[in-house]
Design a binder for these strands. Structure first.
Lengths: 230, 230
DNA sequence: CGGTATCCCCGTCGATACTG
DNA sequence: CAGTATCGACGGGGATACCG
């Protein structure tokens, strides 16, 4: 919680709670369904655990988050007040989508992208059984270049090492390109046609893959120029 | 602009721009129509001018604000991108209204309240000519206890000194009470009935006064319990 | 009116390591 | 898995004064 503004305006009172660094991103993670400390960390990997812990305590004190400890594990849950922050985060994300298009190289974190993709897998469209997809990012240092996604109806696992299963499909391209697809700045088919992103594997799986990985919830936000054309 | 989060998520990119201290309140002021530096200052009186200046420059760089200098005066205007922050500020204010009810004494700034009231005067309901209304806050140190509002169809002026005109109506009560009325936590008639707020003057003007001072735009936000009863 | 200039402090945050 | 502990730097921003 930032220091007080000494204003009675509700915008000020809300901002007091929310303008601390990382706070809104933690709430974004909670809204997107993460409940455990280490899951939250994966959504904000550059945030130190100490600060995450502090932010969570602040949010608990503010009545936005409930910490539920059942002895075996701890869960952080949004209270009704916290859940009602969804419109704030949504409008912020929609605005960011429309008006903050340019991404620096430092904004492109493969770990985060895989974490996002994994959360959004449309398991209804998966083949039965286990499907392993690899991602290779040509513009990324070797250490973070290769990723494996192990997809089943029950769960999706992200690995930064070869889990040993047969690989069904491989996606190759630049990290930037795949991030643009995720954000909806580009769609799968544009990216594939332009050749900067390639998918290898049996035809049927290649065709199905875009369906497994639907873009971010903000992908559908109309871009500033859309209205002019329509 | 805060330091970067190094995330490609649009919520993060938007937050980078907006999570600096005071930034959202400056935008609130711009959205509510203030265009000049010193008008903006009145809306964020506790902010140092140096910081306000810095924030405005950041917002200009971010494409949210346009600084227009015509040689005689400088105007800060929201760009289309800036105007589109309205939903963010509105949802934030609505949330604050619902979930951050308790106000500390330090949140009660008479100057700010008068500034808000003055911006919202419904001049259609004013009597013809000039009407002077005084406010006396019983719970406030002498220096900030008495205020004058000079109302005409053309303009509304706030004074912290007696401007010398005849006073038509006087409002007396605690600052807290009037802030609650402004926020919509209490309505004029409740406050008057309870006697903690009193209005003195000719009957007709006394009756008309609540109409001159409509509550904040957030007053109509339904409170958390409202749904239960309806 | 519309800002700059400066100073300095204190709190925030990042980094790193470690624990039950 | 779920955090604490510690430490240091830096820079944000509060205060105050001043200029065109």
């Amino acid at each position: 919680m930032g220091s007080p503004y000494h204003q009675f305006c509700p915008v000020a009172k809300a901002t007091e709670l929310l303008d601390g660094r990382w706070t809104l991103l933690v709430i974004r993670e909670l809204l997107s369904g993460s409940r455990h400390f280490n899951d939250l960390r994966r959504g904000v990997p550059k945030m130190s655990p100490a600060l995450l812990s502090k932010r969570l305590q602040e949010l608990v004190r503010a009545g936005v988050v409930e910490r539920r400890d059942d002895g075996r594990e701890v869960a952080y849950l949004l209270t009704p007040a916290g859940e009602e922050l969804r419109p704030v985060v949504e409008s912020l994300g929609a605005w960011g989508t429309r008006w903050v298009g340019e991404l620096g190289d430092a904004d492109l974190d493969p770990k985060l992208l895989l974490w996002d993709l994994h959360r959004n897998v449309d398991s209804d469209l998966l083949p039965p059984g286990r499907t392993v997809v690899t991602f290779r990012f040509l513009d990324v240092p070797a250490k973070e270049r290769d990723w494996w996604l192990v997809l089943t109806a029950a769960a999706v696992d992200v690995c930064d090492f070869d889990p040993g299963y047969d690989v069904a499909v491989s996606v190759t391209g630049t990290l930037r390109e795949l991030v643009l697809v995720w954000r909806g700045d580009l769609d799968w088919f544009q990216a594939l046609r332009s050749g900067t992103l390639t998918v290898q594997g049996p035809e049927q799986l290649r065709r199905a893959l875009p369906g497994w990985f639907p873009p971010s919830r903000f992908a559908a936000v109309p871009r500033p120029d859309a209205g002019v054309l329509a």
